[in-house]
Design a binder for these strands. Structure first.
Length: 459
DNA sequence: TGAAATGTTGGGGCG
DNA sequence: ACGCCCCAACATTTC
């Protein structure tokens, strides 16, 4: 009588460098590879639309990869606290393995599950797979979490080198007749309207394509990583959705960057890894500030006098009709492809927060819904960075001028023309706001916040 | 991973 | 030759 192992995949849709999967294989019993669509556990943020599109296709790819190894993906839907024990009973499982995640609700759910499974006599183990450095291991000399990136980065580099990636299992055996939802029943893909054409043209989700992307970057665009601030150039890795869904692990990226590279790319590799460590930093912030997506890290921003902006104007921003070419180009790239170049993310976010005086949470929510790489740590942390309310954030008065940014980083307007082809036509909209006056208003609003904050502290 | 305002310097035109 | 002014270029400060 076998007691199968369950591998519960979440943000780690890969077979290689997957410690939970390898642990299950090493246990020697048949393995059920599970993905659970959990929109029901309180506090776990439901995925946005673009992420659901990606998830659908990444699960499809994963299932195909599993079938090539003699297994398949088991799909279930519901709250983990209900559905995991149900699956355990269905298959008479003897062990459950997973790789760790770092949001509060997720950690609480996982910890509760681990306790209840162990109380029933099952093996229940979790693994480090999705961060190079566990958040609780990177601390200041005082034992506090870092609030500033650069010392955090140095502390990471002082740690032992991250482990080498693990090989994927050669073959898998799975128990017969495990009930699985049809993926199509989950409704992850958009219909009426089908807005995903641009996503389909841009991306191939799945582990194999993730490795192709990393390899192409390491041997190609990485040499041009010094040009990464120019949005018309393909000088970035485009690995963000791969990391979000764990089609590739940061360990695999780390060691690829430490491996054989063209000479021109050696120094660039460290610049790129520094960005990967920003992801670590953001997850560490999330670990210590679980409400990162809803609460300003700097409490004085609770008093920031956001403007009461009509929804129609926020829609102009969402749809890329602000009349500011670089902002509109970025927002259209986002809507069309589910991704936006990093510099343009900063410009579009600064425009919403500072030129329009809209609460950063509004923008964060839109990016959450439309980005294929929306991540519960990076997305809110980066919005708070731009707002000035975050850890090691840009000072509030650092207001991007989108015209100047276009001059500096899209000199020949290639990026703008790609996404806003009607830029020179008469019907291109007038600017939604006056850049000079709105900058002034943003600085005044910041001053108002500072004044009311200090009054609040005195009373 | 900013921008704008303000300050400083030095070359050159000109009386 | 000299002082004066203008202004561009660069540096520093401020928001």
């Amino acid at each position: 009588m076998s007691t199968p192992s369950i591998v519960w995949l979440r943000d780690d849709l890969r077979l290689a460098d997957n410690p939970a999967l390898n642990a299950a294989v090493d246990r020697g019993e048949p393995v059920v590879v599970l993905y659970l669509l959990d929109d029901d556990t309180e506090g776990i943020r439901p995925l946005g639309g673009a992420s659901r599109w990606w998830l659908h296709h990444s699960l499809t790819a994963l299932d195909a990869d599993l079938r090539a190894k003699g297994s398949s993906l088991t799909l279930r839907r519901g709250a983990a606290a209900v559905e995991i024990p149900r699956l355990v009973d269905d298959v008479s499982a003897g062990a459950v393995y997973w790789n760790r995640r770092y949001g509060k609700a997720a950690r609480d759910a996982d910890a509760g599950l681990k306790t209840s499974l162990r109380d029933r006599g099952l093996v229940a183990d979790s693994f480090q797979a999705n961060l190079l450095f566990e958040p609780w291991t990177i601390q200041t000399g005082q034992g506090q979490p870092f609030k500033v990136f650069t010392p955090f980065y140095r502390a990471c580099l002082d740690r032992p080198e991250p482990r080498h990636p693990l090989d994927e299992p050669d073959a898998l055996t799975s128990p017969a007749d495990v009930a699985s939802d049809p993926l199509d029943d989950w409704g992850l893909l958009p219909t009426r309207p089908d807005w995903a054409a641009g996503l389909r043209d841009t991306w191939t989700p799945g582990e194999a394509a993730a490795h192709d992307t990393l390899e192409a970057f390491a041997t190609g665009a990485l040499a041009d990583y010094g040009d990464r601030d120019f949005p018309a150039q393909e000088a970035t890795s485009r690995l963000s959705p791969r990391l979000r869904f764990g089609e590739i692990s940061p360990f695999q990226i780390w060691h690829r960057m430490r491996g054989a590279l063209p000479d021109a790319s050696r120094e660039r590799a460290q610049s790129f890894l520094r960005e990967v460590v920003w992801r670590e930093f953001n997850h560490t912030i999330l670990f210590t500030s679980p409400d990162l997506a809803t609460v300003s890290y700097r409490p004085e921003f609770d008093r920031f006098p956001w403007a009461d902006v009509p929804e129609s104007e926020i829609d102009s921003w969402r749809q890329g009709r602000t009349g500011i070419p670089l902002v509109d180009a970025g927002m259209r790239q986002l809507w069309t492809t589910g991704w936006m170049h990093n510099r343009v993310r900063m410009v579009t976010a600064s425009f919403l927060i500072k030129n329009m005086l809209v609460d950063w949470r509004v923008g964060e929510a839109w990016f959450w819904d439309t980005l294929v790489d929306a991540d519960e740590a990076n997305n809110p942390a980066n919005w708070q960075w731009t707002a000035g309310s975050g850890a090691d954030a840009a000072p509030y008065f650092r207001v991007f001028n989108p015209e100047l940014q276009a001059t500096k980083f899209d000199k020949h307007r290639d990026y703008i023309r790609q996404w806003v082809p009607e830029i020179d036509d008469e019907d291109y909209p007038e600017p939604l706001v006056d850049l000079k006056a709105s900058r002034r208003a943003a600085l005044d609003a910041y001053e108002t916040m500072r004044r009311t904050s200090s009054e609040g502290e005195q009373s």
